[in-house]
Amino acid sequence: MLGATYSLVAIGYTLIFGILNLLHFGHGEVFMIGAFIGLQMVLLTNCHIVIAILGSMVGAALLGLIIERVSFRPIKKEYHLAPLISTIGVSIILQEIGTRIFGGDIVGFPKTIRLVIYKIGPVQVTSVHLFILAFALMLMITIHLFIHRTKVGIAMRVTAENATNASLMGINTNRIVSMTFMISSALAGAAGVLVGLVYNAVSPFMGTEMILKGFTIMLLGGLGNVMGAMIGGIILGLMEVFSVAYLASSYKDAFAFGIMIMILIFRPTGLFGTRLHEE
């Protein structure tokens, strides 16, 4: 279940990396802010959870647009590390804002979905889990169709291949970049609310942990490979569940990093080979 939400975050990373060749360190904080927007909507307006998720997606998309305008577009691209560092600056700002506005505490998520437990053989599944899984899958299918079927999606892929060619072909690359940030952020926002539902907790520091998971998944699936990110997220989710069962829980992180190192050394293109973007 969790894996599907990881996938959402990782797809965002992957899109931004594939199209802009940028490791976006502020993405985890977008995820966190998204979770808070969803939480506040439920707390303040008592709306339905689906509306809260949609709201947080819109909010996160706007945030993504602001991040792009403020900390990415104005920076000269011949310095590769400068945009990376400025997104770190952004993540510091967002985390502070998160702490200031929402307080430094972990907040429980109100129960909005009636809890039903289904038993399928030995596996127990709750209605919350099913809802999360369904919603995440739906978003992934949507994004997949969007990238492969729509004009904007195709323009995004062309830009990922070669930005100069894309602009020669009359694609407004600036607009594509903004779109990429917005879509990725919206996915992160949705993931934030869904993760909040799973753990029944939202905190200003939840983004930091997600950054690392996002990177691992991105590597697992192959840098810049959207489909890989989807599957990679689910694999990582499953791995975490099983490693909790079979390993001391404090070692489970080391396990994930060990896998990350192995992939880098032996299969730097990820498990699923082809990438959107060649270096």
Partner: peptide, 24 residues
């Protein structure tokens, strides 16, 4: 033989493994 972003991620993973090692 690893460069750029890949090296960044490799070294990041190593650093985290050190941290987890001392934690345990």
């Amino acid at each position: 033989r690893i460069k750029g972003i890949y090296l960044l991620l490799l070294t990041l993973a190593f650093g985290e493994m050190v941290r987890v090692f001392f934690l345990n």
